[in-house]
Design a protein around this nucleic acid. Structure first.
Length: 499
RNA sequence: GGCGAGGUAGCCAAGUGGUUAGGCAACGGUUUGCAAAACCGUCAUACGCCGGUUCGAGUCCGGUCCUCGCCUCCA
């Protein structure tokens, strides 16, 4: 078995075959750093993170490159509004993005090239395209000539004639007049008054949107990469244009595989800045553990739309994200299970027994791997996780009985399964007690419940219980329960959580 | 208009020709001073609609309805 991925260019699932066996060069379109990331931005990041983690876990040496678009109209505009320089804004937002993606449990890419640091390569690429007759200069602008590339449209599976028929309305741009063909696109844009600019053979200006990715991809990974990823909306025109300009410049295949993730939607509509229906990750982080967002995203196949449910109050204020909340509950279960395993009294482990773990524990790695090999089916993978946790709890339940032990073999298998889960899906990486307390304390704070107050109540109740005053003890339970505080009497003492 | 994705039991969501996906909710049981947690069981012979192919279709083919996306900055 080997990894099979849905390939946008082939329009079907194909085996992932890198040009060099055992190595994978991956380029993913990263953020334009003009604002904090929203929940939609988390999806590709988590998706490609799992891809990279998974490949590495199978021994593939991955070079993961994700660019930063730090030269862009939106950055220039927003910076002007804020009264800061485009670079200040971009640097600030890059840090914000990095922090958010870290909190979601993503690995950092191996390299994060910036457009502003790739100007010489971009200019060189544009010159090459002009020299080869695929681009033309108009004043201080340079355009790519789409008609010079017969394969144009192969990625998005459309052709120029069809598109012209449908796109009639929106060509009101002054720019259109300069182009030989409406779908020709800018490789280099001459600077207008007051805009940041860089010198070039065509005068001061800045790169067009598409050329930067070709240049950065080639600079970091060479003319042919193994996989190029991004959001579904980048298929056309961004990636289509990247293929055209890259292939025309190098004469060779630009990317062997094309992978695109589906959107996060709100009320079945795409979450986007322009629709204004977006939620920043930091808003969400205030309501739920970042890892819960990761878990929820992974519970849906990466190409299926993720329809985000949003719970608002009458005035439209954000109350919660029910799916993230549910995912957080699942993570509580996961970390409780992990904590039980790690804290199991060693006297309960039979070193001599060779009794194997249940297949759902022992074969977890193989099952997860098999799920991910099938077009990164993380939803199926998480169903294996659900069974894994159930089996581990069942195993641990056995130790509740006196004189009953579990085998070291089974314990180790369970432990290994957790390790593998964290490595490949990036789930369950935190220290269990730390995670659980953080969730509890955040939920308590949301409801204005003081930790010390709860603990006083618990002390009171335990005193009553010791005296077999169960009426009193149950009164305390009822009082706390009404506030959502759940009391758990365990063998090791009484703990509490918020539901 | 063109191209593409999706419609699966109360809800979420896998599954692409034939034996239990999984989760949530609900209900029963084991356990518990009572609970909760955990585990076991039930919910479930569900697959937008109409035809066709097949011994057999959620899964393939044809048609049709609905939702969404791209074609314009966008993950």
């Amino acid at each position: 078995m080997a990894l099979v991925l849905h390939d946008t260019l082939a329009a079907k699932e194909v085996p992932f075959v890198p040009s060099e066996p055992g190595k994978a060069r991956i380029y993913v379109c990263g953020p334009t750093t003009y604002d904090d990331a929203h929940i939609g931005h988390a999806r590709p990041c988590v998706t490609y993170d799992v891809l990279v983690r998974f490949l590495r876990s199978t021994g593939v040496e991955v070079t993961y490159v994700r660019n930063v678009t730090d030269i862009d109209d939106k950055i220039i505009q927003r910076a002007a509004q804020n009264g800061e320089s485009p670079k200040e804004l971009s640097d600030r937002m890059f840090l914000s993005y990095t922090e958010d993606m870290d909190r979601l449990g993503n690995l950092r890419p191996d390299r994060e090239p910036k457009v502003s640091e790739t100007l010489p390569e971009i200019i060189e690429l544009v010159e090459k395209l002009i020299a080869r007759g695929h681009a033309y200069q108009v004043g201080s602008d340079v355009y790519f000539e789409v008609s010079s590339f017969p394969e144009y449209g192969k990625l998005s599976h459309r052709n120029l004639a069809e598109m012209e028929a449908g796109a009639s309305e929106r060509v009101d741009d002054a720019e259109q007049g300069k182009k030989r063909h409406p779908f020709d696109f800018a490789l280099w844009k001459g600077a207008k008054e007051g805009e940041p600019s860089w010198p070039s053979p065509w005068g001061p200006g800045r790169p067009g949107w598409h050329i930067e990715c070709s240049a950065m991809s080639m600079k970091e990974l060479g003319p042919t990469i193994d996989l190029h990823g991004g959001g579904l909306d980048l298929v056309f025109p961004h990636h289509e244009n990247e293929i055209a300009q890259s292939q025309c410049a190098t004469g060779t295949c630009y990317s062997r595989h094309w992978m695109h993730n589906g959107f996060v939607q709100v009320n079945k509509e795409k979450m986007s800045k322009s629709l204004g229906n977006f939620f920043r990750l930091r808003e969400a982080f205030a309501k739920v553990e970042p890892e819960a967002i990761r878990y929820a995203l992974l519970s849906v196949h990466y190409r299926t739309p993720f329809n985000l449910e949003v719970d608002l109050d009458d005035e439209g204020h954000l109350l919660s994200f029910p799916q993230f909340r549910e995912a957080e509950n699942r993570l509580e279960y996961l970390y409780e299970t992990k904590a039980r395993l790690l804290e199991l009294d060693s006297a309960k482990i039979d070193e001599a027994s060779s009794e194997p773990a249940h297949a759902e524990i022992a074969e977890f790695q193989a099952r997860l791997r098999s799920a991910l090999e099938s077009d990164l089916n993380t939803a199926l993978g998480l169903s294996h996780v659900a069974l894994l946790l159930k089996r581990i709890n069942e195993l641990l339940d056995r130790t509740k009985q006196k004189k009953t032990k579990i085998s070291r073999v089974a314990w180790t298998a369970a432990h290994e399964a957790f390790r593998h889960l964290a490595e490949v899906l990036g789930i369950g990486q935190a220290e269990p007690r730390f995670f659980l307390e953080r969730v509890r304390d955040r939920r308590a704070k949301e409801r204005g419940i003081e930790r010390s107050w709860v603990e006083e109540k618990l002390a009171l109740r335990n005193q009553a219980r010791a005296q077999k005053d169960f009426v009193q003890a149950d009164a305390v339970r009822a009082e706390l329960s009404a506030l959502g505080v759940e009391i758990l009497d365990g063998t090791a003492g009484t703990t509490w959580r918020l539901v």
